[in-house]
Nucleic acid binder design. Structure first.
Lengths: 125, 125
DNA sequence: TATAGTGTACTAGCTATATAATACAGCTAT
DNA sequence: ATAGCTGTATTATATAGCTAGTACACTATA
C-alpha cells in the first residue's frame, strides 16, 4: 500500500480518507490496531505530526480510540462503522448525481457507462 | 446564480468549475459573451485578479477566447466543447466508480440508489 | 533502571492563495 | 476629444493552513 499523495488536498486529509476507505471496505476490522504515528510517518515519508492530526480527527469522529501509550485501534462500535459506510455511499452518490446533472444523457446510457467502467475497473484499467 | 464558495478549493478554480459546468450544460453557448472580469468580480464579491486567473486558465484550455479589449467569449470550436463534455462525464464516472469500489454492494442495488437520488434531485432535495 | 517505544503539546516557518493598488493600451459611444 | 468601458501586467502585502521540529509524559520490557 504505497498511497500516492496529490498536492491539492492536505496530507492529513488524504491519510484520513485512506483509513476511512479501509474501514469501509472491511480491510481494517473493529478493534484492529492502527500503525503507530511514527511508524506510519516513516512508511509514508511524512511528518509524525501530520499523522497525529489525521488520527486525532479520526478519534474525534469516534472512528478510532486510544488507550494510554498504546497504538490507537479501530472502533468496536458497529453503529459507527455502519454509519460510516452509509455516509460514504451516500456521499459518493450525491457527488455523482450532482456532477452528472448538467450532462444531457439518458438514464439507460448512464447505466451502461457505469457498467462498463465497473467492468474495466476490475480488469485493472 | 449566487455561487457559494467553499473554503477548501481556491476561488479561481471554483470559478473555472462554474463556467465549465455552464458550458457542459449548454447554458453558455458557443460564441456567447462571458461577463467582463470586473463585472464578475463585483457580482461574486471577489477580486478582479482572481477572475483574471480563472479566465486566463480557461483561455489556455481554449474554452474561451479573447479579442482585443472586448469581453472573452465561449469557444466556437465544437470539438473543444465536445471534448469538454466527454471529459466531464468520464471524470464523473471515474470518480464515482473509484469511490464506490470499497463498498460491498451489488450492481442492482447501486442502480436503484442512483435512480432514487436522481429522482430526489429533481424534486429539489 | 535504562532504553525504546507509545501518544501528546507547543511553536515556528513555509507556501499557496487571495487581495489590493496601480498602471497601461485599446476600443466605443457620448 | 473625453469618459468609461474592455483586457493585461506587475508588485506588494496579508493571511490561513499545513507541515516540521522539538520537547514532554508515560509505559513496558529487557
Amino acid at each position: 500500500m504505497a498511497l500516492i499523495f496529490n498536492k491539492r488536498d492536505p496530507i492529513y486529509m488524504q491519510v484520513m480518507h485512506h483509513f476511512r476507505r479501509l474501514i469501509v471496505s472491511g480491510e481494517l476490522k473493529p478493534g484492529e490496531e492502527m500503525p503507530s504515528r511514527r511508524q506510519l510517518a516513516n512508511q509514508m515519508k511524512i511528518n509524525p505530526n501530520t499523522v497525529q492530526r489525521a488520527y486525532s480527527e479520526m478519534e474525534e469522529q469516534r472512528l478510532i480510540y486510544t488507550e494510554a501509550n498504546t497504538p490507537s485501534k479501530v472502533t468496536e462500535d458497529p453503529d459507527i462503522v455502519k454509519q460510516l459506510k452509509k455516509e460514504w455511499l451516500d456521499q459518493a452518490l450525491t457527488h455523482f448525481v450532482s456532477a452528472i446533472d448538467p450532462v444531457d444523457i439518458s438514464l439507460d446510457e448512464l447505466m451502461t457507462m457505469i457498467e462498463e467502467k465497473l467492468a474495466n475497473r476490475k480488469k485493472g484499467n
